[in-house]
């Protein structure tokens, strides 16, 4: 019973980090119809910035703030200077379908090499904002740590801010409308291209938070966020790719599921477990667990 509860809590904290990456992917997918594989690279770059600031100032939260800002700027820049040019050029022939995907891959490689050339490949370790040692109740120490709870709280705050932004503000409405129907949004007077760039910026900032949180558990290297990208993608697919709520639910389900495997089966099977979940969802419910007989678009 106790173990089950611990598993659930740790699963939530793991899943909440996946939720941020998965949200970032869904945000971009909805507005641009591209799975942005460079999201891992953008998050990594932002995290290196955040890491530098956090290490120098000894304040994790200042680092997080810089990671968000760096992520947002980079995200906006990628859309503005890169995706727009790409869509202008690669607009016909066999490349049409594959060009955006390939381009984000190229960007991932580019950011990775630039980060590698700048910071090298060494393992960097970030001072976590809270203890990684589990809470102790009298005699018993559980694996769930203050850092885990802080992770959950941080993600919850971000999710609430995002929910308010999307549901309560005109910018949020413009973002949703441009994602659902760019043409109608444009006819309503919305500058859809600009709105899309803002969406990329939000995704970039959210990715930066995910990177910082992962890095407070693990080392930072030019490759250390690849797995986050993969699990974020799996979570997004579980949620159906279209829905932000779905992305979060998918991530929590995945986080808890993988923690169950970790605690009851073994560390080594975690990846295979995640990959099997992906294949299962794709085979059985390719529109995600939120879908109700709606046909997938795009």
């Amino acid at each position: 019973m106790q173990k089950a509860l611990e598993t659930l809590l740790i699963g939530l904290s793991t899943g909440s980090i996946y939720a941020l990456m998965s949200l970032a992917l869904v945000l971009v997918w909805r507005s641009t119809r591209v799975i942005n594989f460079a999201q891992a690279g953008q998050a990594m770059f932002s995290t290196y910035i955040g890491f530098e600031i956090a290490t120098r100032s000894q304040i994790f939260w200042l680092g997080l703030l810089f990671a968000i800002v760096a992520g947002a700027l980079l995200g906006a820049g990628v859309d503005y200077f890169f995706m727009r040019v790409l869509f202008k050029h690669a607009n016909s022939g066999p490349a049409l379908v594959v060009a955006p995907v390939i381009a984000t891959l190229g960007l991932l490689g580019l950011i990775r090499s630039i980060v590698g050339l700048t910071w090298g490949g060494e393992f960097k370790s970030l001072t976590a904002p809270a203890s990684k040692n589990g809470f102790t109740f009298g005699e018993v120490t559980i694996p769930f740590s203050p850092l885990d709870s802080l992770t959950i709280i941080t993600v919850a705050v971000i999710l609430i801010i995002l929910a308010l932004l999307f549901q309560r503000t005109n910018l949020g409405l413009a973002l949703r409308a441009s994602a659902y129907s760019p043409e109608i949004a444009q006819l309503a007077g919305i500058r859809t291209a600009r709105t899309r760039t803002i969406g990329w910026a939000i995704a970039g900032g959210v990715g930066g938070v995910a990177g910082m949180l992962v890095t407070s558990y693990n080392f930072l290297t030019p490759y250390s966020l690849d797995l986050l990208l993969v699990f974020g993608f799996i979570a997004a697919v579980i949620g159906g790719l279209e829905s932000m709520v779905g992305a979060v639910i998918g991530a929590l389900v995945l986080g808890i599921g993988l923690t169950i495997i970790l605690n009851y089966v073994g560390t080594s099977l975690v990846f295979i477990g995640g990959f099997s979940v992906l294949l299962l969802v794709l085979l059985i419910k390719p529109d995600g667990i939120m879908a109700r007989g709606k046909v997938r678009r795009g």
Binding site: L173, A188, I190
Partner: peptide, 13 residues
């Protein structure tokens, strides 16, 4: 979107 949101859309600009 909701009916209201559809209407608001026209005024955002």
């Amino acid at each position: 979107l909701s009916v209201k949101e559809n209407l608001i859309l026209g005024g955002i600009w």
